[in-house]
Computed example of a mutant assay.
Amino acid sequence: MRKQREIVAELTDRQLVLNVYLSQFIMLLLAIILSFFVFDHWIDFLELFQGNLLTVVFLSGAIATVIVMVDLLMERVFPKEWLDDGGINERVFRGLTIPKLFLLCAVVAIAEELLFRAVIQSTFGLIIASSVFALIHIRYLDKPVLFINVCLASFLLGGLFYWTGSITVTIFTHFLIDVILGLIIRNRYLKQVKRSVVK
């Protein structure tokens, strides 16, 4: 993990964002390839995208709000160093325009949910899919509070997919979580920059 931090530290913010896109492209490609083996017919895969629009919006909004509120509560309860991811999330989001932030969050939500929920969970079940999802966030392994938080979010998304049978709900929930937290990180950074300019 130290080696990963050293590599990340050497990257510019732009290179870091490009690496996020590259990793998501690999996940999406993997999801597409594996779906040929998991689903007998494309119709089985397409059925996962069911869902009434109002249900998707309200259910996703409610779950995303709960997860974001827990994140914000954790910031008030735990010491800052317990929640420090090495500044990676800040570096990813701080320089993005709002449309670029929305695009990045959409790509992440689609790629990760298709791979971990639609493909892995459909094949191996909730526990394996959610555990693997949590483990890909390797930079959190030496931060128990962050890792437990990612695990809980992962199992919640997995449970949501199990309960609704709709990948649309989990994609939109994941998207909302990332967008809201990304906007919070971006706004905090911009306020910090303004304060330092005023001084």
Results as ranks from 00 to 15, higher is better:
R2M: 07
K3M: 06
Q4I: 12
E10L: 08
L11W: 06
L11T: 00
T12D: 00
D13L: 07
Q15K: 12
L16V: 01
L16P: 13
L16C: 03
L18E: 12
N19D: 07
V20W: 08
Y21G: 04
S23H: 05
F25N: 00
M27C: 09
L30Q: 04
A31Q: 03
F37D: 03
V38F: 02
V38R: 10
D40C: 05
H41E: 07
I43S: 15
D44H: 00
D44M: 09
F45R: 03
L48V: 05
Q50P: 05
Q50K: 15
Q50T: 13
G51A: 04
T55Y: 11
F58S: 12
L59Q: 06
G61F: 02
A62I: 13
A62D: 05
M69N: 03
M69P: 02
D71R: 15
L73I: 12
M74V: 07
R76M: 06
R76P: 10
R76A: 05
V77Y: 14
F78G: 01
F78L: 11
E81L: 00
E81K: 14
W82D: 13
W82P: 06
W82V: 04
D84I: 13
D84Q: 09
D85P: 06
D85G: 00
I88H: 02
N89V: 05
R91C: 03
I98H: 06
L101R: 12
L104G: 10
A106T: 11
A109E: 09
A109M: 01
I110W: 04
E113W: 02
E113G: 03
F116M: 00
F124D: 11
G125H: 02
L126Y: 04
I128L: 10
S130G: 11
A134M: 14
L135F: 15
L135H: 05
I136Y: 12
I138M: 14
I138G: 14
R139M: 05
R139N: 14
Y140F: 06
V145L: 12
I148V: 15
I148M: 09
N149I: 02
L152K: 05
S154D: 10
L157I: 05
Y162F: 09
T164G: 06
G165Y: 01
G165R: 01
T168D: 01
T168W: 04
T170E: 04
I171Y: 03
I171W: 14
F175Q: 12
L176Q: 09
V179P: 02
I180H: 05
L183C: 06
I184K: 07
I185A: 04
I185C: 02
R186S: 02
R186T: 06
N187Q: 11
R188I: 11
R195M: 07
V198L: 15
K199D: 08
